[in-house]
Simulated assay, not measured.
Amino acid sequence: MASGWAKDGAVQEQIDSTVEDGINEARQRLQQRGPSLEFCEACEAPIPQARREAVPGVRLCIDCQAEADRNDTHRAGYNRRGSKDSQLR
């Protein structure tokens, strides 16, 4: 339910746009990685075959990837296109 000057469905459009941006970012990161590694590049633990097949170009074991995801500050956390500041420019 949109209110004020927003058109109907504006909130859902913001949500869809944010999800789409996240998917596109993840796809770009996967395409840059190349072949999967057999051993984690951070801790040298073996990467299971199932993980290598599920995630093409995987470079980290599950534990190291979880830590990297926690430390990833690249994501803004919200859709900037929907913020008031971006609408004023």
Rank of each mutant, 00 (worst) to 15 (best):
N71A: 08
Q32S: 10
C40L: 11
R27H: 09
N79E: 03
G34C: 00
E20A: 12
A50M: 15
D16H: 05
D69R: 07
C64D: 06
N24A: 13
Q49P: 06
A76W: 10
E13W: 10
A50R: 15
A76M: 11
R52T: 09
L37D: 07
N71Y: 02
D63P: 06
F39R: 08
N24E: 15
E41V: 15
G57R: 02
R59L: 08
Y78D: 07
P46R: 02
D63L: 06
I15S: 00
T73I: 14
H74K: 11
E25T: 04
R80L: 15
R70W: 07
N24Y: 11
R52Q: 08
E13A: 09
C61A: 09
C61M: 07
A76C: 11
D63G: 08
I15Q: 05
A6I: 09
Q28C: 04
E44D: 09
C64Y: 02
G9W: 07
H74G: 05
A76G: 06
R33Y: 01
H74S: 09
V19S: 05
A6W: 14
Q12L: 15
G9T: 11
G57I: 07
V55W: 14
V58R: 00
E38T: 09
S3A: 09
E25I: 07
E67P: 02
A50L: 14
V58S: 06
R75W: 14
A76S: 08
I15T: 05
T18H: 03
Q31E: 13
L60T: 00
A45V: 15
V19D: 06
P46C: 02
C43G: 08
P35K: 11
I47S: 00
Y78T: 04
N24S: 06
V58W: 03
F39K: 07
E67W: 04
Q31A: 11
A54T: 12
D16E: 04
V58Q: 02
A50S: 15
A68T: 08
I15P: 00
A76L: 12
S36Y: 13
A76T: 13
A26Y: 12
D21T: 10
C61R: 02
Q32P: 05
C61F: 12
A54N: 13
Y78R: 08
E20R: 07
E13F: 04
N79A: 00
G4W: 01
G9D: 02
D72I: 07
Q14E: 15
N24R: 15
E13L: 03
E53P: 04
E20K: 13
S36A: 07
E20Y: 09
G34I: 01
N24W: 10
N79S: 01
A6T: 12
V11D: 04
G57C: 02
H74N: 04
R33H: 03
R80M: 13
A68W: 05
D16P: 00
R70I: 13
Q31T: 10
E13G: 01
R33D: 01
T73V: 10
D8T: 05
E44H: 13
A2T: 10
C61V: 11
E44V: 14
P48G: 14
R52D: 08
P48I: 14
R59A: 01
I23E: 05
W5Q: 07
D21S: 03
D8F: 03
D72E: 11
K7I: 00
N79Q: 08
D69T: 12
A6F: 14
I15C: 02
E44Y: 11
Q49C: 05
E13S: 01
Q49L: 08
A50I: 14
K7V: 01
C61W: 10
K7E: 04
E44F: 13
R70S: 06
P46H: 02
P35E: 12
P56M: 12
